Amino acid sequence: MLLKNNIPFKYVFGKIKYEVLLVAVYTLIIVILHDRFNLKHMAIPLSVPMIMGTVISLLLAFRSNQAYDRWWEARTIWGAIVNDSRSFTRQVLSFVDDSAYESEEINHFRERMVRRQIAWCYALSQSLRGLDGKDGLEKHISKREVAYVSRFANIPMALLDLHARDLNYALKKGWLNEFQQVTLDQTLSRLCDAMGKCERIKNTVFPATYSLYIHFAMNFFILLLPFALIEYFGLIEVPLVVAIAASFLLIEKMAIHLQDPFDNKPTDTPMTTISRNIERDLKQLLNDHHLPETTQNVDHKFYVM
C-alpha cells in the first residue's frame, strides 16, 4: 500500500515513461510536418477531441471506482481477519477449565493454537500473492505440522483444519464445553469465509473487454489531440499534449493496479504488515516478548506490503 508521503516522482513517472515518450515524439512529428509543409488541412475542430475526452473521462472515473471497490473490499476483509484473529486468541486463552489452568499440556495447547493462527495469516498473505505459503511457517508451528500442511495445495485451509482437529481434541479432553467449542468453531468459520472472499477477488478477472475498449478509445483520443491544438499553440502543444495524455494514462494505470489487490506490488493490500501487527498483538497476549520488527517507519520506503 502506498503511503501518504514521500512517493517519489520516479515511481509515478516510471509507470508511463514509455507512453509519454511516444506521445512526445508523435506530437513533435505532427508539429514539424505542419510548420514545414504548411499543411493547414491537418487541423481538426477542437470540439471533436473535447467530446471524446469528456466521454473517456466518465468511463475512466467509473473504471477507477470499480477498481477501488475491489481494493477496498480486500482491505475490509483483512480488517475482519485482524478482529477475528484477536477474538480467536482471546477465546482460546479464556475458554479453558480454570481447574486445569496450570496444566502444562493445556498451556502448550493454547500456545500452539495462537502461534498457528499467526502462521495462518502469513500463509494466507503469501498464497494470495502467488508465493510459497509454507515460507516462514517453521518459525511459528512445529516441523510435524509443517510436514502435514505441505501435502495440501491450499496451505491456509490445512492450517484451519489443524485448528478444528485441536478443538475437537480439547472438547474430548474436557478442556472446552460444547458451547465454547461451537463459539470457537464459528470464529474459524468466519476466518474461512474471509479466506474465500480473498480468493474470489484474486481469481475473478476484471472484465478484459471493458478495459480494452477504454484503452483503445483513450489512445484514439490522444492521437487526435495534436491535430486539434496545432493551430492554437504551435510547438508549445508538445508539452501540453504530453501533460494531458499523462493525466489520462496515470488514471488508467492507477485503476489497473488497484483492481488486483493481491499482486505483490506497492499498491497491494498491506497483508504482510497486517500479519505482522496480528503477530505482535497475539504474542503479547501470550506474554511472549519476542515481537516482530516493524518496517512501517523506514524513511526510504514509500509503501508497505
Rank of each mutant, 00 (worst) to 15 (best):
F9V: 13
F9C: 07
F9M: 12
K10F: 12
Y11G: 13
Y11H: 14
Y11E: 11
V12Q: 11
F13N: 14
K15M: 15
K15H: 15
Y18A: 12
V20M: 13
V20D: 06
V20E: 08
L22W: 10
V23S: 03
A24D: 00
V25G: 07
Y26H: 07
T27A: 04
T27S: 10
L28E: 04
I29L: 12
I29K: 00
I30S: 02
I30M: 06
I32Q: 01
H34Y: 11
H34L: 00
D35S: 04
R36E: 02
L39N: 00
L39K: 03
H41D: 09
M42S: 01
I44H: 01
L46D: 06
L46C: 00
S47A: 09
P49Q: 06
M50V: 11
I51F: 09
G53V: 07
V55Y: 07
I56R: 07
I56V: 15
L58V: 15
L60V: 13
L60N: 15
R63M: 11
Y68N: 10
Y68T: 05
Y68G: 04
R70L: 14
W71P: 02
W71L: 08
W71F: 14
W71R: 08
E73Q: 10
A74Y: 01
A74Q: 02
R75N: 06
T76R: 08
I77V: 11
I77H: 07
W78Q: 06
I81N: 04
N83T: 14
N83G: 13
S85Q: 10
R86W: 12
S87A: 15
R90K: 15
Q91R: 14
Q91L: 14
Q91V: 04
V92G: 07
L93Q: 11
F95L: 11
V96Q: 13
V96Y: 13
D98T: 09
D98S: 12
D98Q: 11
D98M: 05
D98G: 05
S99C: 03
S99G: 15
A100W: 05
A100P: 00
E102I: 05
S103K: 10
E105P: 01
I106L: 15
N107Y: 05
H108K: 10
H108S: 12
R112H: 03
R112F: 00
V114P: 03
Q117I: 04
A119R: 02
A119Y: 01
C121I: 01
Y122T: 02
L124D: 07
S127W: 04
S127P: 00
L128K: 10
L128G: 08
G130E: 08
G130N: 08
G130V: 08
L131A: 13
K134Q: 10
K134D: 01
G136K: 03
E138H: 05
K139L: 04
H140G: 00
I141Y: 00
A147Y: 04
Y148M: 07
